[in-house]
Design a protein around this nucleic acid. Structure first.
Lengths: 221, 221
DNA sequence: CCCTCCTGTCTTGCATGCAAGAGGGATGCT
DNA sequence: AGCATCCCTCTTGCATGCAAGACAGGAGGG
């Protein structure tokens, strides 16, 4: 069998990456059946690497394998979502604290540049662009905590939330973008002044606020 | 092929559970090679379920699979250990806060019983017994946070630390048991008085103290 | 003596075939 | 009509065979 396109690593890694992407973006609908054999044919590989890929996605919480029945895209319950936001608050708060403790590192400079650009996007009322900066802001915070375990587990949890898709929704709330950006400024200022305690506290409040904005935007539609 | 002993679930689940146990207890030495074929023969199954089990243990951070080379028991680096303790501090602190917010639930009663019994063990200078109560205390705290994601990720991280084995070591430090138990009392009191902020703060200090006691006990031997 | 290359053997990666459980739909009975 | 039951098909779970990369050790040349 020919080696197609040669996405970087092994066959199963390609399958993992692509399926993860599909689930996170919502291209694979929540609750949908993922048949090993269908995916195998689609990727041009045998069932084995597909199987192992799905198994890994299960431990990442993205799919649910019901033995002898089928593998399905995970459908987070209301409770799951609450828990995930609790974890988000917790981990991002801790990241803010850790970054503040590290002092003036590269990520702080990148955050400064981020809020500068984000300010412009808000002023121009360009929500799509601002959503991108929001994601970058949170990502930089996590990376800046300089703790690989924290980062790995954070990304795993946010994948379960399909968070990237949600950001846009929460910014639909009138005035949320402006408020959000103000909160980013406060957090960054506290980090720069090395006040880890306050940075953590404010970051937590920021996450709670963004969660409220999101849920408000999700209620009716 | 006969069905041996019939550990509850599928073959691979049995392999996962047993290998996880071996790694955590140290029965499988850090860095040791885990050959699929050897394990397969040992468990009386084919390579397939063994393979899938090892793959899952990899995503749990317990083994490292080097492609085309072999699968090895993970050997945490010094940095890994630092990161794991950071996560421990973070997650247990958050658990204390969440439990305090929940008010008077079953886990609080169990914690009260735990410190009562643990006090006796300390008074009798029975360190092995006290170590058991320490594990239970931390476990109850996590369970009491009532957040399944937090619990799952916490257990994953503590498995990487092989924490159960470490508790005993940290209690070797003279006076550590007494001090530790005092700290447990303070945390529990703060939880009972629903002071989440302080409970989190004190719990974090407790984790840091236990980490120091542990590292002090590990330096020389 | 030392360095290089080659080969044999170990490892995992993948393909494939078969078995067994779960579920749905058709069928026959009441 | 309504309901229980049987069977057929779909799914995954597991076993096995082959291929290919990695690494050690020995042979040969400098």
């Amino acid at each position: 069998m020919q080696r197609l396109a040669a996405g970087t690593g092994s066959r199963q890694e390609r399958v993992i990456a692509e399926m993860r992407r599909r689930i996170i973006t919502g291209e694979a609908a929540s609750g949908a059946l993922l048949s090993e054999i269908v995916l195998a044919e689609e990727f041009g590989v045998s069932r084995t690497p597909v199987r192992e890929a799905l198994k890994q996605l299960q431990t990442e919480g993205l799919v649910e394998i019901r033995p002898r029945v089928g593998t399905f895209v995970a459908a987070p319950s209301r409770r799951d979502i609450t828990e995930l936001f609790e974890m988000k608050e917790l981990l991002e708060g801790a990241a803010a604290r850790l970054l503040a403790q590290r002092g003036r590192v590269r990520e702080v400079e990148l955050l400064e540049e981020n809020v500068r650009q984000a300010d412009l996007a808000v002023a121009a009322d360009d929500r799509a662009k601002y959503a991108g900066y929001v994601e970058e802001f949170h990502g930089l915070l996590i990376t800046g905590a300089d703790n690989t375990k924290l980062e790995a587990h954070y990304r795993m949890l946010m994948n379960q939330l399909a968070y990237s898709r949600l950001v846009v929704t929460s910014l639909q709330q009138p005035g949320r973008a402006l408020q959000s950006e103000r909160e980013h400024h406060v957090v960054l200022d506290l980090i720069r002044s090395k006040d880890g305690d306050s940075a953590e506290q404010v970051m937590r409040e920021h996450v709670r606020a963004s969660r409220r904005a999101l849920l408000a935007g999700l209620e009716l539609p």
